[in-house]
Every structure is written in structure tokens, then in C-alpha cells.
Measured scan of single mutants.
Amino acid sequence: SQQIATAKDKYEWLVSRIVKNHNENWLSVSRKMQASPEYQDYVYLEGTQKAKKLFLQHIHRLK
């Protein structure tokens, strides 16, 4: 749906803004993002596993 696509774009923007180093780990980054509406919306719509998967894809691109 359009809502999910929009939430994903915003979440990816948030991840790219916060995660600048491929050594970052999911636990510390997800804690930093918990207060962000972009993170909350995406997790609400798609779940934590998908959020983690996108985070890991971003990390992989930074290597």
C-alpha cells in the first residue's frame, strides 16, 4: 500500500541519517530510533523484523 511505501521511505531516511558506520549494531541503533515517529510508524505497519532487515541492508551498503 501507499501508506507502507511512504513509511518505508521515511524509515530509510531516518536510518541513513543515524547510521553512518557499518559497525553499528541493531540494538543500540533501534534504541536511538525508538522515539522517532518514522521508526514507530514503520514498525507498527511492518514489524521489527522488517525494520531490522532494512537496517542490515543499509549496513551492508556502507561496507
Results as ranks from 00 to 15, higher is better:
F55P: 06
L14P: 02
D41M: 09
W26E: 04
N21I: 05
Q57A: 13
N25V: 04
H58W: 08
L27Q: 15
I18Q: 06
Q34W: 08
N23S: 11
Q40A: 07
Y39H: 00
V19M: 03
D41P: 00
L54F: 07
R31Y: 08
E24W: 05
S30T: 08
G47T: 01
H58S: 02
V19D: 02
I18W: 06
V29M: 08
W26D: 04
Q57R: 09
A51N: 00
I18V: 13
I59K: 09
I4F: 06
W13Y: 13
W26C: 05
Y42C: 00
K20V: 08
Q49S: 11
S30G: 03
H60D: 15
Y39M: 04
Y44R: 15
T6D: 11
Q34D: 12
K53R: 11
L62R: 04
N21P: 04
K8G: 02
N25Y: 00
K32G: 02
K63Y: 02
W13Q: 15
T48A: 13
S1N: 13
D41L: 08
E46P: 01
N23A: 06
N25C: 11
N25I: 05
F55S: 00
E24C: 01
T6E: 14
K32Q: 10
K63T: 07
K20Y: 01
N21M: 05
R31M: 09
K50H: 11
E38F: 12
K50A: 15
M33S: 01
K32Y: 04
N23I: 06
Q57H: 07
S28L: 07
A7V: 11
E38G: 04
K50N: 10
K32D: 04
K52Y: 09
Y42L: 03
V29P: 01
Q57E: 15
Q2T: 13
L14Q: 05
P37D: 07
L27G: 14
I59P: 02
N25T: 14
E46H: 11
A51P: 00
I4T: 10
V29L: 06
K32T: 09
A35Q: 13
T6N: 15
V15F: 02
S16G: 10
K52S: 01
L56T: 12
S1K: 12
N21H: 12
K53Y: 10
Q2L: 08
A7T: 08
L27R: 08
K52T: 00
E46N: 10
A51C: 01
L62W: 03
A7S: 05
A51V: 00
L54A: 06
S30Y: 08
I18Y: 08
R17N: 11
L45F: 08
V43L: 06
S1A: 12
R17L: 05
W26N: 07
A51G: 01
M33N: 04
Y44I: 13
K50T: 08
L14I: 00
W26S: 01
Y44T: 15
H60Y: 11
D9N: 11
V19A: 07
L54R: 04
M33F: 05
M33C: 00
E38R: 01
K10H: 07
L56K: 12
T6F: 12
K10M: 06
G47A: 00
V15D: 00
L14W: 04
N23P: 02
N21S: 12
P37E: 08
V43C: 09
R31A: 12
Q2W: 10
E12F: 05
R61I: 01
T6W: 07
V19L: 03
L27H: 15
P37Q: 13
N23T: 12
A5V: 11
S1F: 09
S16R: 14
K10A: 12
L27I: 12
H60E: 15
R17I: 07
Q49R: 11
Q34Y: 07
K52Q: 13
T6G: 08
K52P: 04
E38Q: 10
P37W: 05
V43N: 03
Q2E: 13
Q49L: 10
Q57G: 09
E38K: 04
N21A: 05
Y44E: 15
Y39W: 05
H60C: 14
Q57D: 15
Q34R: 12
N23L: 08
N21E: 06
N23W: 09
R61T: 10
Q2V: 06
I59E: 01
D41G: 08
M33G: 02
Q3C: 10
E12K: 10
T48W: 06
Q3F: 11
K63I: 10
Q49E: 15
N25D: 14
Y44K: 15
H22P: 15
R31V: 08
V29Q: 01
A7R: 03
F55E: 01
F55M: 03
N25S: 15
R31S: 11
N21L: 05
V19I: 07
S1I: 09
N21Y: 03
N23H: 12
I4N: 08
L14A: 05
F55G: 03
K52R: 11
K63R: 11
Q34M: 11
F55A: 03
S36P: 06
Q3L: 10
L62Q: 06
V19G: 00
H60M: 14
K8M: 06
F55T: 02
L14H: 02
Q3S: 11
L45M: 10
T48Y: 15
W13K: 15
Q40G: 04
K63N: 12
E12D: 04
S16L: 05
Y11C: 01
D9L: 13
Y11Q: 02
L62S: 02
L56Y: 11
W26K: 03
